[in-house]
Amino acid sequence: MLATSLAGDYPLLNLFWTIAEIFLWVLWIFLLVRVLDDVFRDDSLGGGAKAAWAIGVVLIPFLGVLIYLIARGKGMGERSLKAAQQREQDFQEYVRDAAGSGSGDQGGHADQLAKLAELRRNGDISEEEYQRAKAKVLA
């Protein structure tokens, strides 16, 4: 019966390199998914260009991804930022619509208070007028 342990057969440096290789593979998979995500979400690319990039990235992954990053890498960040801003704007519109469509008069009150706050912020009404109008809305 062999009584050696696995830890004795696998030196610390080999363990370090194994962890580094696993980390690099996970990083590579993340980068590959990110590139494919960018290819399919880009509205400026036509169907043929998307298919060509996808085939290139899948068939020759290392070279395909590097070429994609060189050719279209700057645009990846810009498209990602634009998509995030669009999602934020859509969310804000949803919140405004949801707040304005409450049950009963709550939606109307919220709209009126928002309009009053806007008038006060623009200097169209004074603080005193704002407080009086706010009291009327809430009464």
Rank of each mutant, 00 (worst) to 15 (best):
M1D: 11
M1G: 15
L2N: 15
L2M: 13
A3W: 15
T4L: 14
T4G: 10
T4I: 14
G8W: 12
Y10P: 01
Y10G: 01
Y10S: 12
P11Q: 10
P11H: 04
L12M: 12
L12R: 10
L12A: 14
L13M: 10
N14R: 15
L15Y: 11
W17P: 00
W17C: 08
A20S: 03
A20W: 07
A20R: 14
E21D: 15
E21T: 14
I22K: 11
I22F: 11
I22T: 12
L24H: 03
W25I: 14
V26D: 07
V26I: 15
V26L: 15
W28E: 12
I29W: 11
F30V: 15
F30Y: 15
L31F: 10
V33I: 13
V33W: 13
R34Y: 10
R34A: 14
R34K: 14
V35P: 00
L36I: 07
L36N: 01
L36D: 02
L36M: 12
D38H: 02
F40V: 08
R41T: 07
R41L: 12
R41F: 04
D43C: 02
D43M: 05
S44H: 07
L45E: 00
G46E: 05
G46Q: 01
G46Y: 03
G47Q: 08
G47F: 06
G48L: 12
A49G: 04
A49N: 09
K50S: 02
A51C: 05
A51Q: 12
A54Q: 01
A54C: 13
I55N: 06
G56D: 04
P61I: 02
F62G: 09
L63N: 04
G64C: 06
V65F: 06
V65T: 14
L66T: 03
L66Y: 03
Y68R: 00
A71L: 12
R72T: 06
G73P: 00
G75F: 10
M76C: 03
M76L: 13
M76S: 01
R79V: 00
S80E: 07
L81D: 04
L81Q: 05
A83P: 00
A83C: 03
Q85P: 00
D90N: 03
Q92V: 12
E93P: 01
Y94V: 00
Y94N: 01
R96S: 07
R96F: 09
D97A: 14
A98V: 12
G100W: 02
S101V: 00
S101H: 09
S101A: 11
G104I: 00
D105N: 11
Q106H: 08
G107Q: 01
H109A: 09
D111N: 09
L113R: 02
L113W: 03
A114I: 06
K115A: 07
A117K: 12
L119W: 00
R120M: 08
R121W: 03
N122G: 08
N122F: 04
G123K: 07
D124Y: 06
I125Q: 05
E127M: 13
E128A: 13
E128T: 09
Y130S: 05
Y130C: 07
Q131N: 11
Q131T: 09
R132T: 12
A133D: 06
K134W: 01
V137Y: 05
V137K: 03
L138Q: 08
